[in-house]
Design a binder for these strands. Structure first.
Lengths: 244, 244
DNA sequence: TATACATTGTTTGTATACATCGAAGGGCAT
DNA sequence: ATGCCCTTCGATGTATACAAACAATGTATA
């Protein structure tokens, strides 16, 4: 039982395809042919079809007119809209959480996450532990949204975040200059605390407004990063999806 | 060639399954078995699988843990959240449209729709032509949202609206008493005009606020209708999906 | 009596052959 | 030369057989 390469062929195909798309191996608009892919992956058409179905569900592929699938292409406008949309949904979640009141235990856990986030860029001058920050930042956003207790809203939020460039941590990785990153992450962290405070104080409108502003900053950062260097997509998951 | 029952077996299976789910033939949580369905529909497992995949994409089914699919179940809370979410998304679309300015030609077309909507409940005392109203109302909402020019946002909005009970016209059909309907539809129509006005005047925040309030009323109407008569779901597409 | 293990049945996963549809290209007629 | 039709080819759609995974149930043994 040392060899555990078996798992599911569908899962493997889904994974391989997703990776290839995210890392730019398959440009937007590329049509995917079942036979070609199944030969390339050395599996039959069935799991390939299944994988394409799932990736379409995720939003990375779209059904082509007349059958089949093609890689979805995202313009820069699409990307900024997705981030704006994320802000809107997170704002809605925060507002609902504030309106209906949040479990104090969950608030405590969230505050612990915030403390740990602080430590990612404390001391050491302007050094920031990006990896740790991204991880914790993602957890924070997920926990905060969870407070709204609405499966329907969380589901749609997850959909939007699953677009690689739209996740709360994707843009952090896009930051090139450490100094500016340090500044903007400090600002982001202040907004994190303000959002939690607003939820605790049952100030729904304020929580929503901050969440939106928070995403707007992410959007701005991404735009700058992208415009400043079109090659910045190297190594940044998702950014390679952006065309035009 | 007189017999044109051929089309696509996948399409037929998708249609049949969707109808069965929407009309309550398959309660929420029901697990779907490929063999059973393929025998019932007299087709092979393959198009049935494909149909289930597509309905999962639509949001009517969900992937079951350990493989397979089951009918998604919606609580009353889910439904109200979905309508709230629709309001949020339509509000965002309206705000973006206002911020970036809308094509006057499209505004004209929208105004024509509004005039036709007026005629659905003009004259004849409190009589309302519900069918015509629903159709035109749906068109109005679609056209208004279109003004935002954002494929990403429109896509998510379409997703939410495709939940049968969350579409802008579904709740209209849920109205039992003609008199109250007449009153609330008059109010809705006033909001329609106010939204267009706000977009034309480039008042993004106002357009967004009205769109949200508009959906809130829909939500309230649905809740009343539903609570007043739990059997009200008869003949109202989608309402039968609601459990608890 | 309880537990471990094997056996059986049900359901999805996978491979593959065949059908069908649609587009592209070539040949024929005008 | 051009327009139309017919053929052909390549792609997805469909059927079906078989494999694998999982759960349930029964049985044997401690």
């Amino acid at each position: 039982m040392t060899e555990s390469k078996s798992v599911n062929l569908t899962k493997r195909a889904t994974y391989e395809l997703r990776q290839k798309i995210i890392h730019g191996g398959l440009p937007g608009g590329t049509r995917l042919f079942e036979v070609a892919l199944s030969e390339e992956l050395q599996i039959s058409r069935t799991p390939v079809r299944e994988a394409m179905s799932r990736l379409a569900e995720e939003g990375l592929l779209e059904r082509a007119p007349g059958g089949g699938f093609q890689v979805r292409s995202f313009t820069l406008r699409d990307v900024t809209d997705a981030i704006e949309l994320r802000g809107v949904l997170e704002g809605t979640a925060a507002r609902l959480a504030a309106e209906q009141g949040a479990d104090p235990d969950k608030i405590s856990e969230i505050n612990i996450l915030l403390d740990r986030l602080d430590r990612c860029f404390a001391g050491d001058g302007d050094q920031v532990d990006f990896d740790a920050y991204s991880e914790l930042n993602g957890q924070f956003h997920a926990r905060l949204a969870d407070l709204c207790q609405s499966p329907v809203i969380l589901r749609e939020l997850e959909r939007v975040k699953s677009l690689p460039f739209a996740s709360p941590s994707a843009f952090v990785l896009g930051q090139a200059e450490t100094a500016r990153s340090h500044r903007s992450l400090t600002q982001a962290q202040a907004q994190h605390r303000a959002m939690v405070q607003a939820v605790v104080r049952r100030e729904g409108a304020r929580a929503e407004a901050i969440a939106r502003e928070h995403a707007r900053i992410a959007r701005g950062n991404l735009e700058e990063t992208f415009v400043a260097d079109s090659q910045a997509s190297d190594g940044v998951p998702g950014l390679s999806l952006i065309v035009r």
